[in-house]
Design a protein around this nucleic acid. Structure first.
Lengths: 147, 147
DNA sequence: ATTATTAATGAGAATGATTGTCATTATGAT
DNA sequence: ATCATAATGACAATCATTCTCATTAATAAT
């Protein structure tokens, strides 16, 4: 089943309308490996969808984020970046270069991490009565070009 | 040795001046367990230091962050929060309530985590030629009051 | 298929956090 | 005590994001 059909069903099921703009943003994010900002998404889509509005980009990214279809990343730039969240693939880490801002996805050692995270989550629940829904680990350092 | 002396030596050693404002911010952050925003720090300090400027708060927080004396936190609120980084205590995790924004520090399982992180860091270095300087893990979920 | 309902959109104003500018002040070396 | 200049305060400027509202388009009902 093509992604677009899955998305559409998801939207209808959640009571949202399936629009050209929403499809365009999902198409773009699901195809790029970049971690794009709202402005970058806007600039890119403007070429194929003249007349698209920046507000709509923001509104849509917020919706997609709440629906769990994209992840919102904050690496301390004063703005958010977004990445498509594939249902298939496992989670991944981000390596962030503190010099040039480059972000690299890294998905090693996820199984080992899962064990540890489960222990932490159980402990948090017992100790503070928290429910952990998600977690995120970022690595900071210098990339190949900046070291 | 009192903290203020350690800070002062650090500043002099790095070629920065030791000023009243810098001491005030470090005092505040080292004593609170809150994760304060620049504005909150400003509002608090204004009572005991009338005439202090918000720009200075921002500049100082940036400097302290670069010196490694405070951590800058971004939990997706569109602004940064800051916490004092003690030289003594080990790192800690943050649990962030996605409903009310509450942040809790949590420092369990740090030894187990260290092993894993070291493996990941070695792997990143070998695979991508990256140098990892630091890492951060956040947990998202619902706190006691919001569950 | 046509129409009615209303969610979604585009344009631009408004907001809020952060950074930049510049004249003044205060720290640390002399 | 004096001097050089880093640090500061006031406030303008910038940038990301949200809000408002009239218009448009997606869906349900006909």
């Amino acid at each position: 089943m093509p992604l677009a059909h899955i998305w559409r069903h998801r939207f209808k099921g959640d009571g949202f309308r399936w629009t050209l703009t929403r499809k365009a943003i999902l198409d773009l994010l699901s195809r790029t490996s970049k971690h794009m900002s709202a402005q970058e998404i806007y600039d890119t889509l403007l070429k194929s969808y003249p007349g698209i509005g920046l507000s709509t980009i923001y509104r849509t990214l917020d919706l997609l984020s709440r629906m769990g279809l994209v992840n919102r990343l904050n690496i301390g730039e004063g703005k958010s970046r977004y990445e498509y969240r594939s249902g298939e693939e496992k989670a991944h880490h981000h390596f962030i270069c503190t010099n040039c801002g480059k972000i690299i996805d890294y998905s090693g050692f996820l199984d080992e991490e899962l064990d540890l995270v489960e222990k932490i989550e159980k402990n948090l629940a017992r100790k503070y009565n928290f429910i952990v829904k998600d977690h995120n680990t970022d690595f900071y350092g210098l990339c190949k070009n900046c070291r």
